[in-house]
């Protein structure tokens, strides 16, 4: 299958409604949602563009991290004093009140660190869907990236331009990060 060409339809900041409409148009042309991706300079909710909700594992990763932190804290509090029992201040080797502090801190540390790691890993891992970027995005432009078979070019151009889009033909996937 020949590789489809990636297009980028740029809408101005305030042309949000038009962008939503354009996506609708593309969908009607038979371009499925996963062949479309929207890039924007400001956070747009999927609902605004009538797009399917994106799914992320970050909460899951965060909770796993929290669990790891919690278990580490349990080990610190109740395991390490047994590895080397040292009596201090007439306290028991394993004290419950003091353990809550460590448990809390390490759970939170686990949660927050792993949340970040989740973001980091998900961000740098290769994403599906059309690549491509335009620097105007960070000026607030809304970009609809989609790959469409060549035969659709004319129709699509017409429809999108009518909505006020500026079309970038063959949007190139830029090297935006280290690798």
């Amino acid at each position: 299958m020949p590789r489809d060409i990636v297009h980028l339809a740029l809408f101005k900041e305030e042309q949000l409604n038009e962008a939503a409409e354009a996506i609708q148009v593309l969908r009607e042309m038979g371009i499925s949602d996963h062949e479309i991706s929207v890039i924007s300079g400001a956070p747009l909710q999927e609902k605004m563009l009538g797009r399917p909700m994106t799914w992320t594992r970050i909460p899951l990763i965060g909770i796993s991290g929290a669990l790891v932190g919690f278990l580490t804290a349990l080990f610190f509090n109740f395991g390490t004093p047994l590895l080397y029992p040292i009596r201090v201040g007439g306290m028991a080797f394993q004290t419950i009140p003091t353990s809550f502090v460590t448990i809390f801190e390490l759970t939170m540390l686990g949660l927050l660190i792993s949340t970040f790691i989740g973001v980091f890993v998900e961000t740098i891992s290769p994403s599906y869907g059309p690549q491509g970027y335009d620097e105007r995005i960070s000026d607030g432009y809304i970009g609809v990236l989609f790959s469409a078979p060549a035969e659709l070019d004319a129709r699509m151009h017409e429809a999108l331009t009518a909505l006020g889009a500026e079309i970038v033909h063959r949007a190139e996937a830029k090297k935006l990060w280290l690798f």
Binding site: I86, R87, V88, G89, G90, M91
Partner: peptide
């Protein structure tokens, strides 16, 4: 030489400990 020495538990590195 307190039996329940306040100095002991606050040391982060077990530098002051109780001799059993």
């Amino acid at each position: 030489q307190c039996g329940r020495a306040p100095c002991e538990p606050v040391c982060p590195v077990f530098a002051t400990v109780h001799s059993e």
